[in-house]
Design a protein around this nucleic acid. Structure first.
Lengths: 250, 250
DNA sequence: TGAGTGCAGTATGTATACAGAAAACGCGGA
DNA sequence: TCCGCGTTTTCTGTATACATACTGCACTCA
């Protein structure tokens, strides 16, 4: 589908949602700033009805906050909020891994996960790793996590994981690109990939506690990446999510 | 505020949301049933704009499901979904308790929780427990859980806990009333109250792992209640949430 | 007889007009 | 100069009209 087709086929609501999200994540709308419907109409070019729907959607996506007297403002996050959200995701993914392990998954449903694991191995093996490989890693990593979550076979859980991961700084791949600029980059990637390997092994052997613990620790890698990237102040431009911080680090 | 004042002051959107939620939870709208906007307009008496907003809100509350081609249907849950949601809540509350324990809370902020604990003790001490006491327990229990979650001092976490607990069958007090009809009622209440005591103790002593484990187990009490109530088929009318089950037990 | 097509009815998506409430602004007085 | 109050403007909440997409049914043709 060409871009023009997309523009034609996608609903005005979705279009407004995308445009507004982009404005927020790029920092053109500052945290704490009130965003009026009329202003949103100007930005997006669609009428108030779909704009309003988009605002509601962005609210429960977590990017906006409702003002008691009506209207919305851009939500402001602290560094602690971000770290907590990562821990939260890790906890949920840990639960998913434990469910998968305890309930047992057939060899067939484990197959796609193992293929994904092998693909990731291919990418990680390079030294040094190209930027393209990093980019491919991000895609494949997201796929791995999605497959893993599905193995829990728990719709309510998957729903919550998706919700938490929708926050731009809490997704499994949020800081991989930023990490690419770090000297420890390759090392961190190798460790992360080992986590992947271990969790698959644990699920296969029905070791629920192990699977859970590893996925929790896995998420803490993202937390470490974030802290490293902020401290080193290297390539902060690779961390668009930081535009949401109450007091910007830059 | 009198009921008429509420009707006057509350927005049409909220009114529609309440009316529709009531229809769903009472089973007058069946799981899987499509619910058109026009139908919702008839039910609620407000116009399409607020009705549509209410439908969107109910969707991310988890009671409705979006149909790909447009519109919404009442979501259907399996017994497994319900049990998973309870485990999910337990996991999140466990994380909250661990945060509280690890980060440390001052004696002053622990005070309201301890008062709440004492109040619950008063209620539980009765034997046999009156229906009024059960009802009071539900209220006080909800307060205890809310206070506990706040001790985590983590806005993202509290947000998710509130969201999960909004599901009518996943809240901490969902099955307490049903439990009141069980012969094991008093016993179960005493055990639950002991969990409460232990988690406060663990937080006070900064025992994060213990606090987390206890809150997880605490949620499993709700799961046991649910299973008992369903098996015994006693007072299923006290379990309005069962109207959401794909294949009703009754 | 079965499958496909066209039409009617109905649903949702969108734009816009209007009313009421909140906020911003300026003016006057202490 | 600062505070309070009234006015004006702007914003949100709501209703409704219109356009478009979808669904279901009947009819036709192979």
């Amino acid at each position: 589908m060409s871009e023009r087709d997309v523009e034609r086929s996608v609903s005005q609501t979705v279009r407004a949602q995308l445009a507004l999200r982009d404005m927020i994540l790029s920092g053109r709308l500052r945290p704490g700033e009130r965003i009026s419907e009329l202003q949103a109409v100007d930005i997006t070019g669609v009428s108030r009805t779909p704009v309003r729907l988009a605002l509601v959607r962005l609210e429960d996506e977590g990017l906006l906050q409702a003002i008691p007297s009506g209207g919305f403002m851009v939500k402001a996050f602290t560094e602690r909020d971000i770290l907590d959200s990562i821990e939260l995701r890790g906890t949920l993914e840990g639960l998913a891994a434990r469910f998968a392990a305890e309930r047992g998954v057939g060899a067939r449903s484990l197959e796609p996960l193992k293929e994904c694991l092998a693909d990731l191995d291919q990418l990680v093996r390079q030294d040094p790793i190209s930027v393209e490989a990093f980019s491919a890693y991000v895609t494949m990593n997201a796929r791995f996590h999605a497959l893993l979550n599905e193995l829990s076979a728990s719709a309510p859980l998957i729903r919550e994981i998706d919700r938490v991961s929708a926050l731009p700084f809490a997704s499994p791949s949020a800081f991989v690109m930023a990490q690419s600029a770090l000297p420890e980059a390759h090392q961190i990637l190798l460790i992360g990939q080992d986590h992947h390997r271990v969790v698959v092994d644990a699920i296969e052997n029905r070791e629920g506690a192990r699977a859970e613990a590893v996925m929790r620790e896995h998420s803490r890698l993202a937390a470490r990446n974030l802290r490293l990237a902020i401290r080193n102040r290297t390539h902060l431009d690779l961390l668009p999510a930081l535009a949401l911080l109450k007091s910007p680090v830059e």
